[in-house]
Amino acid sequence: MKRLSLSQAFAFILRRDLLIALRNRSELANPLLFFVLVITLFPLAVGAEPNLLARIAPGIIWVAALLSSMLSLDAMFRSDFEDGTLEQMLLSAHPVPVLVLAKVTAHWLVTGLPLLLISPLLAMMLGLDEGAYGILLLTVLIGTPILSLIGAIGVALTIGLRKGGIILSLLVLPLYVPVLIFAASAVDMASGGLSAMPQISMMLAFLFLSLSLSPWATAAALRMSMS
């Protein structure tokens, strides 16, 4: 058997995970549906007054994105953990953090990217200021990978547990706070006609920080869970 190079291994895992997701359409649709549903609940709960909705739209969209990304986290390693693929990944000759990064990328493409595509529609329904659409898309584009990266650590820590769901949210949500703050306020700023560059820069900093640290923490946590 011929040995895969590192980039081939990365591409292989990415392709495999995407293929599994595509064959399993309902899992693909669930986080998206959840996102739309949560946002639908808000006008029903706080009233359909356009001014109010437009004002709280950035917050609603981001809280919904946070929750939806958190709910889909468990799928990142669950089936691989159950059928032993994860064990093979840890045993392989390639550095685990890189393989983890491939899985996180696949997870983001499956759960984060659809949010990016649907968020302008929801922003329109909530009556967000039109000038803020670009910034909203930018925050979702930068923010959701951070959520997947941080979430990966939490999933890796709780993958061995039978009832990991509640504990996962307890672990992951406090760590999501900075993303929520900066993303929502960036959209807020943009809808007020101000520059959102400081927030966007901070989010980019978070992205690179989590990109460089999270795969290692996730790999360590996976090794712990498989021991």
């Binding site: 820590l157 672990l171 406090p174 760590l175 706070v177 900075p178 901070m202 923490a217 712990m224």
Partner: peptide
Amino acid sequence: ILAIVGAVNIPIIHFS
């Protein structure tokens, strides 16, 4: 692992 991840995040959370 969780304690270390949290410790990295505490200054970020606090600052944000």
